[in-house]
Amino acid sequence: MLAGHLTVCSKAAETGPCPLLPLLLHVWSLHGELLTSPAVPSLQSRLSSATQHGSNLDLHGKPPPILSLTQLEILLLLNSWYYAMYFVIEILLFIYKSLLLPYTSANLALDLVMLFLYLGVEILRIYFGSKGNLSQRKVPLTISLMLLGPSAVMAVYYMLLQTYVLRLEVTINAILLVFYVFELVLCTVGLIRFSSVRLSD
């Protein structure tokens, strides 16, 4: 459209001077058409988009308070490293007991299956605990808190109830139970703190 009007203006320039005021008025009208075109985002849509991106701000334009517990995150990290060491030690102890003790195949298979189930529960528990703590969300932290029960039961089983219990196993499982007690307290504190503010889950 603009090219056509420029052509008209150029033809008019051959016969006489192009009137400046009509040309400016026409350019202004084209500018208004471009602003109202659906291909160009309006200022209102940009403001609404900016509002969506700033939805994490409170009424005063400030970010929400940081309520994540550093102590819980450090404890979960230490727990993950300790459990990795614990798992390796338990596998080596099972090999040792199967070679030196009259371990039946059924009991050995049961203890090994439960150990691998224990590993899966611990991975999920630590993952959801860290995710809920860092994102300040109650749902993942609640899942981690619920998985703390099965983890504690497994630790008690390998400390007292498995087929053959060595003194080393009593020690390493007791350390795990100490981890669980502190994590229970800190997860509960985290849930109370996260409930004090309205955060979307």
Rank of each mutant, 00 (worst) to 15 (best):
S195M: 09
Y103H: 11
I192H: 12
L117D: 15
T7H: 06
R167P: 14
F94S: 00
L93N: 08
L141R: 13
A3T: 08
S42H: 03
V197A: 04
L93E: 08
Q162E: 07
L75D: 03
A39L: 08
G16K: 00
G129R: 00
V189Q: 13
G16P: 01
R167M: 15
L69S: 11
T36W: 04
L6M: 10
K11Y: 09
L35T: 12
A84M: 11
L124P: 15
A39I: 07
V156G: 11
V165N: 07
S29W: 01
L24N: 14
W81C: 00
S135K: 09
I89R: 04
P140V: 01
A50M: 09
L77F: 14
S105H: 07
V8S: 15
L177H: 06
E183Q: 15
M1C: 06
P140I: 01
Y86G: 03
R198K: 15
S98T: 11
C187S: 10
L59K: 11
K97N: 06
E90R: 04
A3R: 02
A109S: 13
V8P: 06
L72M: 03
L75A: 01
T70E: 08
E90I: 05
G4R: 02
L47K: 02
S98K: 07
L108Q: 06
A3I: 02
F128S: 05
V170H: 10
L34Y: 11
V153R: 06
L93R: 10
S45T: 14
L191S: 14
L119P: 13
A84V: 05
V185C: 02
I172R: 02
D58W: 01
S151T: 03
I91V: 06
G190V: 00
L25K: 15
V40K: 05
G132M: 05
I74Y: 15
P19I: 00
E33Q: 13
F194T: 14
I175K: 05
L161Q: 12
L115I: 07
G16F: 01
G120N: 05
W28F: 01
A39G: 04
M1L: 02
G120T: 09
S48E: 12
L2A: 10
S29L: 01
S49P: 06
Y157D: 00
V178Q: 03
L101Q: 01
R198M: 02
